[in-house]
Protein backbone atom coordinates (compact mmCIF):
# COMPACT_ATOMS: atom_id res chain seq x y z
CA UNK A 1 0.00 0.00 0.00
CA UNK A 2 1.20 3.47 -0.93
CA UNK A 3 1.84 5.43 2.28
CA UNK A 4 1.02 8.83 0.75
CA UNK A 5 -2.26 7.60 -0.69
CA UNK A 6 -3.12 5.85 2.56
CA UNK A 7 -2.50 8.99 4.58
CA UNK A 8 -4.42 11.10 2.06
CA UNK A 9 -7.41 8.76 2.23
CA UNK A 10 -7.41 8.87 6.01
CA UNK A 11 -7.25 12.67 6.05
CA UNK A 12 -9.78 13.37 3.29
CA UNK A 13 -12.44 10.72 3.81
CA UNK A 14 -12.12 9.65 0.18
CA UNK A 15 -11.02 6.12 -0.67
CA UNK A 16 -7.65 5.34 -2.22
CA UNK A 17 -9.47 4.45 -5.40
CA UNK A 18 -11.33 7.76 -5.47
CA UNK A 19 -8.05 9.58 -4.96
CA UNK A 20 -6.27 7.61 -7.70
CA UNK A 21 -9.12 8.32 -10.12
CA UNK A 22 -8.26 12.02 -9.99
CA UNK A 23 -5.00 11.31 -11.79
CA UNK A 24 -3.24 13.59 -9.33
CA UNK A 25 -1.54 11.18 -6.95
CA UNK A 26 1.92 11.46 -8.50
CA UNK A 27 1.78 15.24 -8.79
CA UNK A 28 0.54 15.61 -5.23
CA UNK A 29 3.02 13.14 -3.81
CA UNK A 30 5.84 15.19 -5.32
CA UNK A 31 4.42 18.38 -3.83
CA UNK A 32 3.09 17.29 -0.49
CA UNK A 33 4.84 14.17 0.80
CA UNK A 34 5.83 14.95 4.38
CA UNK A 35 3.81 18.18 4.48
CA UNK A 36 1.58 19.09 7.45
CA UNK A 37 -1.88 17.45 7.46
CA UNK A 38 -3.74 20.70 6.87
CA UNK A 39 -1.69 21.44 3.75
CA UNK A 40 -2.33 17.99 2.33
CA UNK A 41 -6.06 18.34 2.92
CA UNK A 42 -6.17 21.81 1.38
CA UNK A 43 -4.40 20.50 -1.69
CA UNK A 44 -6.81 17.60 -2.16
CA UNK A 45 -9.97 19.55 -1.32
CA UNK A 46 -9.33 22.82 -3.13
CA UNK A 47 -6.47 22.13 -5.55
CA UNK A 48 -4.39 24.90 -3.96
CA UNK A 49 -0.78 24.39 -2.88
CA UNK A 50 0.75 27.24 -0.90
CA UNK A 51 -1.32 29.87 -2.70
CA UNK A 52 -0.94 28.40 -6.20
CA UNK A 53 -3.20 26.17 -8.29
CA UNK A 54 -0.63 23.75 -9.70
CA UNK A 55 -2.74 22.62 -12.66
CA UNK A 56 -6.19 22.95 -14.20
CA UNK A 57 -6.80 19.33 -13.21
CA UNK A 58 -6.03 20.15 -9.57
CA UNK A 59 -8.88 22.69 -9.64
CA UNK A 60 -11.27 20.41 -11.52
CA UNK A 61 -10.68 17.44 -9.21
CA UNK A 62 -11.02 19.38 -5.94
CA UNK A 63 -12.59 17.05 -3.39
CA UNK A 64 -14.70 19.82 -1.84
CA UNK A 65 -16.76 19.84 -5.04
CA UNK A 66 -16.93 16.06 -5.11
CA UNK A 67 -18.10 16.00 -1.50
CA UNK A 68 -21.03 18.21 -2.51
CA UNK A 69 -21.67 16.15 -5.63
CA UNK A 70 -21.13 18.92 -8.18
CA UNK A 71 -18.46 19.70 -10.76
CA UNK A 72 -15.98 22.49 -10.11
CA UNK A 73 -17.49 25.52 -11.91
CA UNK A 74 -16.31 25.84 -15.50
CA UNK A 75 -14.96 22.29 -15.78
CA UNK A 76 -17.85 19.93 -16.57
CA UNK A 77 -21.44 20.75 -17.37
CA UNK A 78 -24.34 18.77 -15.93
CA UNK A 79 -26.57 19.49 -18.94
CA UNK A 80 -29.37 21.91 -19.82
CA UNK A 81 -32.01 22.13 -17.13
CA UNK A 82 -30.26 19.67 -14.79
CA UNK A 83 -30.26 22.41 -12.15
CA UNK A 84 -34.02 21.95 -11.72
CA UNK A 85 -33.63 18.53 -10.21
CA UNK A 86 -33.33 17.55 -6.58
CA UNK A 87 -29.59 17.33 -5.86
CA UNK A 88 -28.12 13.89 -5.57
CA UNK A 89 -26.02 13.29 -2.50
CA UNK A 90 -22.47 12.21 -2.98
CA UNK A 91 -21.76 8.70 -1.80
CA UNK A 92 -19.48 8.76 1.15
Amino acid sequence: MDAFVELSAELTGFSAEELRSTGLVEQYRALAQGAPEADIIELWYTGVWHGVVPSARAYAEGLAWKAVGVAAPGTRAPGFGSWERRPRRSTS
Partner: peptide, 27 residues
Protein backbone atom coordinates in the same frame (compact mmCIF):
# COMPACT_ATOMS: atom_id res chain seq x y z
CA UNK B 1 -16.11 25.91 -0.62
CA UNK B 2 -12.43 26.65 0.17
CA UNK B 3 -13.32 28.72 3.21
CA UNK B 4 -15.62 26.04 4.61
CA UNK B 5 -12.95 23.41 4.17
CA UNK B 6 -10.36 25.58 5.91
CA UNK B 7 -12.75 26.25 8.78
CA UNK B 8 -13.51 22.57 9.35
CA UNK B 9 -9.85 21.56 9.06
CA UNK B 10 -8.90 24.22 11.59
CA UNK B 11 -11.61 22.83 13.89
CA UNK B 12 -9.86 19.46 13.72
CA UNK B 13 -12.18 17.58 11.35
CA UNK B 14 -10.53 14.85 9.32
CA UNK B 15 -11.58 12.00 7.07
CA UNK B 16 -15.26 11.06 6.77
CA UNK B 17 -16.29 13.72 9.29
CA UNK B 18 -14.66 16.42 7.18
CA UNK B 19 -16.19 15.11 3.99
CA UNK B 20 -19.62 14.96 5.60
CA UNK B 21 -19.32 18.46 7.07
CA UNK B 22 -18.36 20.00 3.72
CA UNK B 23 -21.17 18.15 1.94
CA UNK B 24 -23.74 19.21 4.49
CA UNK B 25 -22.65 22.85 4.68
CA UNK B 26 -21.97 23.64 1.05
CA UNK B 27 -24.94 21.64 -0.23
Amino acid sequence: PGSDTAEFVAAGLRGKALRQAVADRVG
